[in-house]
Amino acid sequence: MTRHHRRLACRRPVARPLLATLAAALSLVVALGAGRVGAASGDSVPGHPAAGHPAAGTEVVSATDGAVHIRVTASRHGFGHEGEGFRFEVRQGQEVTLTFEYGDDDLERDNPHVFLVQGYGIRTERLDRNNPEVAVTFRADRAGTFTIRCIEPCTGHSNLLAGRLEVLAAAGATPEGGSELAVGLAAAATRRQPGGLTLVAAVVDPAGNPVPGVRVAFYEQASFLDQSGWAELGTAMTDPQGLARLDVTLYRPGELTFAARVAGRGPRTEARLTASAAGPVAGYQPEPRALGVPFINVRLIWLAAAGVWATYAMAAYQVYRVYREGKAWSSGA
């Protein structure tokens, strides 16, 4: 992919030599707020195994540290009789039991469903009038967001496509004391490249000391068609000053929201930044489809054809000459 001359500028242009100063200030701010940010991390709050936005008809049956049991009614109107909002969180490593209940008893016809936990490759048995309750149990061993959807061509299918299971990364997957770390974020425009931007994150431990050698992931809040979410921009390791830098390229003007976190865990720390286009946006430039050599052109065919037909005309003219001669001969005879 080639991209040329995206002229995006930051409304808070900060010259590159100032970056260090900025970063230093940043570490200070983060250090002061470290305790607060750390406390907000979901990992450090025990006894909160399942949360989210349970819709009506959704029920957290039981939740312990090791297992969680969710029960939801599925009907043509959606999960829990609602179109949207079936979403729950578990922690990585928990055993999840999902029970679906048939909710279309008011319908004359049978309206069977089969549910899938996308990304876990888990499928329920067929849920229908004769089998009004199905359950699956699995261990949530992978972190991330997973979709729960119906794969049977049922009535109200489109209402049963967007259940969400969020598996929060476990604390054990990160370096020691990772849950205590705090992240601050700042951004500065770079001069090296149009639309270039440098994101700087500072990582400190609860004591306020910079933490080197931690991988920081940077995100951008993005919306694409009807989808939105945090798009990962890249990762960077913190240097001895506890600062991680990432050079990114902006592809569109407008208000942009960035975030950073210690890779793989913890909440994101957000930083808002407004960028606007300065000058025309050239956009994506596909390669030319032809050779692009001047005069080598398909229209040369006309030239060849014109030559041929001109010659034909010369030959056909001879017929006219024959005709003319014949006429002269007749009138002479």
Binding site: Q118, F224, Q227
Partner: peptide
Amino acid sequence: PMGALYFGDYETDLASNGAEVVRLSR
């Protein structure tokens, strides 16, 4: 059902499979 297909856009450099939004180039 697997989120194996992403739809994306070179212009905004974004793509989505219906579950997440990602940077296409990345």
